[in-house]
Structure formats: structure tokens, C-alpha cells
Write a protein that binds this DNA or RNA. Structure first.
Lengths: 110, 110
DNA sequence: GTTTTTATCAACGACATGGTTGAATAGTAG
DNA sequence: CTACTATTCAACCATGTCGTTGATAAAAAC
């Protein structure tokens, strides 16, 4: 995943409205109007949020008459957790190595 | 994890410089100057990035003479993957249920 | 006690984000 | 053909982000 896509994906999740949309979409596809319903903002603003999510690759869209249902793209979410976990786990292992090193040095002293 | 902390944490990761810092810190603590070294930006800018990461709870800091080493906070990273995975897995299950429903309807028809 | 190192604070500018309203488009329904 | 529904485009404004430079603080080293 390119730097640019990671930028956009994490940025997309850095907004409570868009995270709530992700939560809603995890239960199934929804139209822009359906997504707008819980919020006190204009439909246009919601449309923009959807475009941000789409550009980030976190959702895809289909066509149903004049509606454009939004679907979650779970693979993109998985890439994000993959990125984070890579470094989290690396840090954990680094920590363990340091711990082991300190342990052996302690044994040498005594 | 509050909306506000999630906002800050995802926002913090939505920048390639800060993600590179996370990558560096996964191999062990580093000072501001050490973190600045790979980048063509001022030390002040790096200091700001560190503050963003710290406010987001992704890193912590200690004291060593006039240095203020930065340490990764893996628990915060884990919370983020937890948030994402919650909805990713919910979506997966929803998808499976829908699939099963379509399957039984198909069987009824025949 | 002056200089050096490490890091932060403050003010500024360029640009992006998140909202608004008003107009336009695409498809459905009468 | 007209009217309604769903969605987007365009222009605008307020606020926030990311970088800069210059000044300041704190601890160390000489």
C-alpha cells in the first residue's frame, strides 16, 4: 500500500462522522441519504464524506436506479490493521530481545 | 477509547513523516534529533510531530539529561487495530449471514 | 560563567478540511 | 413532457495542519 493511500485511509478514519459511517456500513450497504439520516449535517456534506472514504479505498459504490449504494471494502481495513500490527509486533519482539539481554548481563554479574 | 482520542490517533497516522517515526520507534526509543535525522525538515517541525504523536497517546517520553527520548506506546496501536477489526469482522459475519440467506432461498425455489 | 547541545515556544504563510447554500445532473414516476 | 428523488458540482468561509524562521529554556561541557 502506497504512502499516499495510507495517508488518505488514516485521514478518512480521523473523523467521527466517517467512522460512524464505517460502523453503519459494517451492517450492510447504504445510500447517501440513509447515511445522512443520523447526522445534523447537509446531504452534500455527507456526499463529500462518502467521496473521501471512496478515494481512500475504504468503500466502493454500485448503482441502483438513481441511488448509488455505498459498500464497505474490508480488504482496505485489513491492510490498515496489517500496517499497524507490523510495527506493534516488531516493537514487542524488540522489547523481548532487550529483556533477554538484560537478563544475561545480570547473570554474568553474579 | 473516546471519539476524540480516535480522531487524534488516526490523524497522527495520516502523515508519512509520523508513520516513519512510528516505524523507527518500533526498533527502540529515539530522541527528537535522532528522529529528525532522516528527514529534510527542521528540528522544530519534528518536535511538533512528536507532540502530535504524544497527544494522540501513540508515544510516551522520558528524560535523559537534556534529551527527551520518545518511546512507542504499543497499547494505543492495539486499540486502533481493535477498533478497525471490530467493524471488519462484523461486516464479514453480516456477509456470511446474507450468503446463507440467499442459499436457503435458492433451495426453496427449486 | 560562557558556550554548546537539545528541545520548545511564538508568529507567520501556504494549503487542506469540513461545513454551508445554490445550481445542475441523472434517473423514476405520473 | 413534467415533476420528483437522489446525488453531485461549484463557490465560499472558518478553522486546522505543516512547514518556516527567530527567540527562549534547560541541562552539560568546557
Amino acid at each position: 500500500m502506497s504512502d499516499d493511500r495510507l495517508d488518505r485511509a488514516f485521514m478518512a478514519l480521523a473523523d467521527p462522522v466517517r467512522r460512524a459511517m464505517i460502523a453503519r456500513l459494517s451492517r450492510g450497504p447504504a445510500t447517501v441519504n440513509e447515511l445522512a439520516e443520523p447526522f445534523a449535517i447537509s446531504v452534500q456534506a455527507v456526499s463529500k464524506h462518502v467521496q473521501v472514504l471512496e478515494t481512500a479505498g475504504l468503500v466502493t459504490r454500485s448503482r441502483d436506479a438513481q441511488r448509488r449504494p455505498v459498500h464497505l471494502a474490508p480488504a482496505a481495513l485489513e491492510e490498515l490493521t496489517g500496517w499497524i500490527d507490523g510495527y506493534r509486533i516488531a516493537h514487542e519482539q524488540q522489547f523481548r530481545r532487550l529483556d533477554a539481554l538484560l537478563q544475561t548481563q545480570k547473570e554474568k554479574e553474579s
